[in-house]
Computed example of a mutant assay.
Amino acid sequence: MLKPMRKLFDLSLPEENSRRKTIAVVMTVILAGLLTLWGIHGIGEYGIALFLFTPLFIGANPSILYGWRKPITRRDAFLLGLLTLGIFMAGLVLFAIEGLICIAMAAPFALFFMWIGSLIGYAIINKAPNNAPTATLLLVAAIPAMAFVEKDIEPALTSVTTSVTIVADPHTVWENVIAFPRMGEPEEFIFKTGIAYPVEAKIDGMGVGAIRHCNFTTGSFVEPITVWDEPRLLQFDVAEQPATMKELSFWDVDAPHLQDYLVSKKGEFKLTGLPGGNTLLEGTTWYCLRIKPAFYWHLWSKGIIHKIHARVLNHIKTNAEMEAYQIKYTKPHR
């Protein structure tokens, strides 16, 4: 197996540097692209295979191919990996596989592991050059193998809680929790990038079994009420949810992760009376994240959910405080 692979390397890699660099980069981009499509649409996994092993491969493989029977420096290895990663990411956008925002989110992680990969490729080609074909095969095989392994790992349930103090009594706040009028346009930059954000909430019915609709820019969260403890606690399940965002792209991107990879399970609003007739309002969302590595993507998901919570809670705060002010200071005309 190794002899044919070495012969293939010799035949397919020209001596001239610029041509060899082009072949090394193009072959790596094509392989990485095919493996990415297989992982996303075939295996159905956004995980370590995509966000860790693929950048490792992109960093290592160009150095292995370019450095086959040729000297290569650590700097050359890094620049080759950087060029390959840049072309690969541009290809994802060009062929509407991913949008600009998701590429930007993944970029720090991808850059780090591309750099690690370039060091691995440099080490292989300088310390064990005869093993270069084997290393390429192992790197290629590791990506789908990892995707199949992590496909069956169930994500953990995670919660995010955000709170705000409102200068209004719990009963006034409650009326603005169960439903609230349309909000203004967001000022936060993150909501101008395509991330879905809430615009209004409506409710059909009262008490347990009522259906609350929290409407976002991409659709509606359908929330059957499971606990109605007025004016202290409102809990609900999430029966349906819309896409998490609309990708920034030159084309219409419909990546699978927009639908089924950040899944809200349930939520609650907890109201606690404070001295002076004020209210502490806490909003909590429980969700599962199927994108891995979880520790990295939770940094993004928790931050975004906090922003969504803050938009809702501050809107409730503004409306409730306005109502409380009118009740307190506006007297009927005689």
Rank of each mutant, 00 (worst) to 15 (best):
residue 4 P to E: 11
residue 5 M to Q: 04
residue 7 K to G: 02
residue 9 F to M: 15
residue 23 I to W: 09
residue 28 T to I: 13
residue 29 V to L: 07
residue 31 L to K: 06
residue 56 L to P: 08
residue 57 F to E: 02
residue 62 P to H: 05
residue 64 I to N: 05
residue 65 L to P: 01
residue 65 L to W: 04
residue 69 R to Q: 07
residue 69 R to A: 02
residue 71 P to C: 07
residue 76 D to H: 07
residue 76 D to V: 04
residue 81 G to L: 01
residue 86 G to K: 01
residue 87 I to P: 02
residue 88 F to M: 03
residue 88 F to S: 02
residue 93 V to E: 09
residue 101 I to P: 01
residue 107 A to Y: 12
residue 112 F to C: 08
residue 135 A to D: 00
residue 137 L to T: 10
residue 146 M to Y: 02
residue 148 F to T: 00
residue 153 I to S: 03
residue 156 A to Q: 04
residue 160 V to F: 05
residue 163 S to D: 04
residue 172 T to V: 10
residue 176 N to I: 01
residue 178 I to D: 03
residue 180 F to V: 02
residue 183 M to W: 06
residue 183 M to L: 10
residue 197 Y to A: 05
residue 207 G to I: 14
residue 208 V to C: 11
residue 209 G to Y: 08
residue 212 R to G: 04
residue 214 C to N: 09
residue 218 T to M: 14
residue 218 T to Y: 12
residue 226 T to Y: 15
residue 228 W to R: 06
residue 232 R to L: 12
residue 233 L to A: 01
residue 240 E to N: 13
residue 245 M to S: 08
residue 246 K to Y: 07
residue 248 L to E: 09
residue 249 S to F: 11
residue 261 Y to V: 05
residue 261 Y to L: 11
residue 262 L to A: 14
residue 264 S to G: 08
residue 265 K to W: 03
residue 265 K to T: 04
residue 270 K to I: 09
residue 285 T to L: 08
residue 286 W to N: 00
residue 289 L to I: 08
residue 298 H to L: 14
residue 306 H to C: 10
residue 308 I to N: 09
residue 330 T to F: 13
residue 332 P to I: 15
residue 334 R to T: 09
residue 334 R to W: 15
